[in-house]
Amino acid sequence: MSKLLSPNAGPASLPRRILQQGRYETITMLRNGEQLILAVVLPLLALAGLTVTPLLDGLGGPRVDVATPGILALCAMSTAFTGQGIATGFDRRYGVLRFLSTTPLGRGGLIAGKILAVLVVLFLQVLVVGAVAGLLGWQPRPEAWLPGLGILVLGAASFTALGLLVAGTVRPEATLAITNLLWILLGALGGIVVPAERLPAVAQGIVHFLPSGALGQALRDAFLLGIVPFPAVLVLLLWTLLAGAAAIRWFKWN
């Protein structure tokens, strides 16, 4: 059955390996029920909640226009931080990371595949949330989509780096607890769906420096005002670089 030293032996091409891993991870994420609740159900509930309550009134636009960019930011945090963090933590526990890194995929390809899966799931979330928000009356500026999606990808990058940092340094049960808890805390108080000016005074000074606050504000500015706020983008960039460097330095594969 073995055809040793086949003249064609060798690895599949790098793009093919990364696509293969990205596809596999995407399907795994989409088939995970808990993950779907966090990725789609809870953000849609939050969107509905924010459009029927007066919480976001007087912030420069209709409720749904103020709420939707924050919900998209929340989606990025669900998928990149909590979802991928937990998945990676358990993959690490079960030796999946070690096994896959012995295949032609390697460590770099594995990380690339995970990032690809985050982006694909995030794209699907944008479609679903965008469609529901559209039904609720969301009217984003057409010219806001390009910078908006760029900011969303940068936010996903910073949250992926943070998720991998947690997953690679503590036990998977702790990863589960930390990423879920932070999702709730940052979701409620991190300036992601509720803008800083509607948060308690103590939180206001901090949230601009958090990835959640920076991403929420950057997306609201892009979609509501049509501007790209460079301080918020800089904060996201710094988080991505710092968390990425820390993950590379401290990630334990076994």
Binding site: A9, P11, R17, Y94, G95, V96, F99, P104, G106
Partner: peptide, 20 residues
Amino acid sequence: GADLRSRVGVMLQDGGLPPS
């Protein structure tokens, strides 16, 4: 790199297979 890894098969003691 990937070329060497493609020529080497590994079965780990704990399997390394995703449970789901």
